[in-house]
């Protein structure tokens, strides 16, 4: 076998073994593939992705599926690959709540996300444990997302959740 053929054989072997490795370890070429696969493996979805936001080392995917909402997290691996999602499973939207939300953190990346069931809500505000304030006026099919970096989360990472209408009146408030 000449050297060019050997090289071709090697390239084919590298591709095949790499695909096998990726398959067995839950790695994908794109964040969307990683997300979709994680949903299917946990028997959820397929959901509609309404917003994608980057964070150090990964992406948050805000999704809707029937009555459920989710914020899946896919992480960057081995320079060009993506690991399957860490929290693909959604929460059933509680329509009675004006603002229905959840939160989580991974290493020092924290996330607060949810849905406005009261359409008059135009701003969501979060008071953090360190006294600082986060807010968003951006909604993606009523879903919202707030992210921040933290080094020392005591309990929740935040102390108060507030939602305002367009006139600036508080329409939802919850303390922690």
């Amino acid at each position: 076998m000449n050297r060019n053929r050997k090289l071709l054989r090697n390239v084919v072997l590298v591709v095949l073994i790499s695909l096998l490795f990726m398959n067995r370890t839950g790695l994908y070429f794109s964040p969307i593939s990683a997300h979709e696969s994680s949903e299917r493996n946990l028997h959820y979805g397929p959901s509609e992705i309404v917003h994608i936001e980057d964070f150090d080392g990964g992406k948050y995917l805000l999704c809707k599926y029937d009555n459920w909402i989710s914020c899946n997290v896919v992480e960057h691996r081995l320079f060009i690959l993506w690991s399957h999602g860490q929290s693909p499973f959604g929460r059933e939207n509680d329509l009675i709540q004006k603002l229905y939300y959840s939160w989580g953190n991974m290493e020092n990346n924290s996330v607060f996300w949810g849905i406005r069931n009261d359409k008059s809500i135009t701003k969501v505000e979060l008071l953090l444990e360190d006294g600082s304030k986060l807010e968003t006026t951006e909604f993606y099919e009523d879903l919202f997302l707030l992210t921040w970096k933290t080094t020392n989360i005591e309990i929740y990472g935040f102390t108060k959740v507030l939602a305002y209408n367009s006139e600036g009146k508080v329409v939802f408030e919850e303390e922690y």
Binding site: N4, L7, N10, L13, V14
Partner: peptide
């Protein structure tokens, strides 16, 4: 080709 062969051999 030589370098690629060497690298791919190690990689495999």
């Amino acid at each position: 080709v030589g370098w690629m062969l060497g690298i791919t051999n190690v990689f495999i």
